[in-house]
Design a protein around this nucleic acid. Structure first.
Lengths: 168, 168
DNA sequence: TTTGTTGCAAAACATTTGCACCCTG
DNA sequence: CAGGGTGCAAATGTTTTGCAACAAA
């Protein structure tokens, strides 16, 4: 299932190659320093790749893309840095099934998804009440909540109308 | 009528070892035949284990438990059958981080999961308020809700204590 | 008897780690 | 120049697969 930022209006998920952030080298350096790490060429190139490339990439994909600009890079470096970024919440890891993890620069604002099972359209939403209840549930079981995934699946208005049209 | 053990009220997730279903060999055979597969001792023992054991188990755990009753069993058999069961929706697979997948007989009654990001322990919960809010969100965007996935991730009490112990 | 199923071992796969060398701060 | 960072290769851990022997229908 595709997770799309600004999905409203997009016809084709491939369009997700658009830049999500508009970050410069200065920003990348700040991010790296905020984690208490040294600034290296490798790390800059990895961040650049995450900011400019497709929205959800696997570690292998990052490695391959990065290898064009920086052929000496080893994949261990990519994995190590992605892990750091994830731990520090600059990057969000999305895992589906047994598939390799996919990474994206953490969106500034948390959101959940409402996905149409028929046409794949995705609407993002935010609901503070639900978030609050989630915290309560976690607390009740002694958990310290770190994050969550809420995906609602249904049929959008257009597809509901389409179905009715076909039935007639 | 299936008996569903809910986490609500449980102090300790380990208590979820209680039986969730009350299934007999007859039921197991029916399930296997419904998938168009042959009934074998191995498959019966695996189903028995899923029905009687702890609620969320990894393939390795199933393999170990099963090995007591059936020492010749290889783990490939466990993996193969769990995959079949998952494909046919008799079993639900829960994956988190890079941790091994956990399996449960697909519950008759809907519930969501609270998963420990450190040890992989899973607590089930049901929260009608959250469900209601989800419906409201869907309605607001003109969606007809069909289903949803809500997974909360955090650190369980035990792992919180372990972390503190190490820090000290 | 025929076809599916099993156990074993090896393979596949993503990810992590040990270590000597290298570069940033 | 000290300590973190890197590339490489080997290790890890889970899951899958090839294959010959075997068992269910």
């Amino acid at each position: 299932m595709s997770e799309v930022i600004l999905a409203e209006g997009l016809q084709n998920p491939e369009e997700q190659v658009l830049k999500r952030e508009n970050l410069t080298e200065k920003d990348f350096k700040k991010i790296i320093r905020q984690m208490g790490l040294k600034v290296t060429q490798q790390r800059l190139v990895i961040l650049e790749t995450l900011a400019e490339g497709r929205v959800h990439v696997t570690a292998q994909e990052v490695f391959e893309i990065v290898n064009d600009k920086f052929p000496e890079m080893g994949f261990a470096t990519v994995y190590r840095f992605l892990r750091k970024l994830t731990e520090n919440n600059f990057v969000t890891e999305v895992r589906m099934g047994g598939l390799p993890a996919r990474y994206e620069l953490t969106p500034k604002r948390h959101h959940d998804h409402l996905t149409c099972v028929q046409c794949g359209k995705i609407v993002e939403f935010e609901n503070q009440e639900i978030e609050k209840l989630q915290e309560q549930v976690a607390k009740k079981f002694g958990f310290e909540l770190t994050n969550h995934v809420l995906e609602l699946y249904g049929k959008c208005r257009d597809c509901q109308l389409n179905s009715k049209r076909k039935e007639a």
